[in-house]
């Protein structure tokens, strides 16, 4: 089978997606199936100068980093590079939250910095004609398996169902909360979380956004071993258009009621259930998980 040619283009980025990608466990197989015409770290047949000055045959354009026409690579505006390659490729993938929504570097001070199709959750007019070609794999960084398997889906001409932000539903229909080992503390409203412990849920006080963040972090584990919420760190909502929100380690509450509730769950439903579960004391969840 012919290798699929991929251009990995970094715009205003930290290269976090590049290095997250390098954590993909079956790299050998991947490199047999794909070839980078350019990659920030992996050697390629062409130099960046070749990429910007010529038009190299390519099947998939990957964009990492926030986009502004002011930002240049090898003296050429990234917007110009995107315009050129978007015409010849079969698909475009915005890799990570910066390329999708603007992310952290939306604030980097370049003129009109945003994602390719979205400025946070606002749909952009520029590049609208490319929407049908684009798949977004958001996340700061993207999960390597989410990226690589999306690339394989493109290679195999599989039509992926996408959400409103062009993200494959197979990965982003879940919430990060799905599969968290701290779920029971959430379900039964045991709200006395302290950092540094195996027990407790960070939703109530420490800003965990997992119940309203789309992603597979607790379904497809990170580095195949863990997730932030399992480790005891709040989900920072890094796959969403709103990333990064402010005051990330504390839960926004109105009269002690969390402002952001599990996605799709009405306030009345949530409060009713919370009121019921909170009335019960569940000893197993009140004590240490691994006790004497």
């Amino acid at each position: 089978m012919k290798k699929t040619k991929v251009l990995w283009l970094s715009a205003i980025a930290c290269n976090g997606n590049t290095h997250s990608f390098l954590n993909y466990p079956f790299m050998e197989q991947f490199l047999e199936d794909f070839e980078f015409i350019y990659h920030p770290v992996i050697d390629s047949k062409y130099s960046l100068e070749d990429i910007v000055s010529k038009e190299i045959t390519c099947d998939i354009l990957l964009i990492e980093g926030a986009i502004s026409k002011e930002f240049k690579r090898a003296d050429v505006s990234v917007v110009k590079i995107i315009e050129k390659y978007s015409k010849i490729v079969q698909k475009i993938v915005t890799v990570g939250t910066c390329a999708t929504f603007g992310g952290i570097f939306r604030e980097s001070g370049y003129e009109n910095t945003s994602g390719l199709h979205f400025d946070q959750d606002k749909q952009l007019k520029e590049f609208q004609y490319l929407r049908d070609k684009t798949i977004s794999v958001s996340g700061c960084p993207v999960h390597p398996e989410v990226l690589v398997n999306t690339l394989y889906a493109i290679k195999k001409s599989i039509t992926l169902k996408l959400d409103n932000f062009l993200r494959p539903k197979e990965f982003y229909a879940y919430t990060v909360h799905n599969g968290c080992t701290r779920n029971e503390y959430f379900e039964y409203k045991v709200d006395n979380h302290r950092f540094g412990e195996l027990e407790g849920c960070m939703f109530y006080d420490h800003g965990c956004q997992a119940p309203f963040t789309h992603g597979s972090c607790n379904k497809i584990l990170w580095n195949e071993v863990n997730s932030k919420t399992r480790a005891g760190l709040s989900c920072m909502g890094c796959t969403e258009p709103t990333f990064p929100k402010r005051n990330l380690f504390s839960t926004k509450k109105n009269m002690a009621i969390p402002e952001n509730l599990p996605v799709g769950v009405g306030k009345r439903v949530y409060l009713t259930l919370a009121g019921i579960t909170k009335a019960f004391k569940i000893d197993r969840l009140e004590k240490k998980l691994i006790d004497d």
Binding site: N254, M255, E259, L271, G275, A279
Partner: peptide, 20 residues
């Protein structure tokens, strides 16, 4: 227990507070 039996009433008070 707790406020289970007055849940409907308390929930609405919560919503009034939260929205306020």
């Amino acid at each position: 227990e707790g406020m289970i039996c007055v849940n409907e009433f308390v929930t609405e008070i919560m919503i009034y507070f939260e929205e306020g």
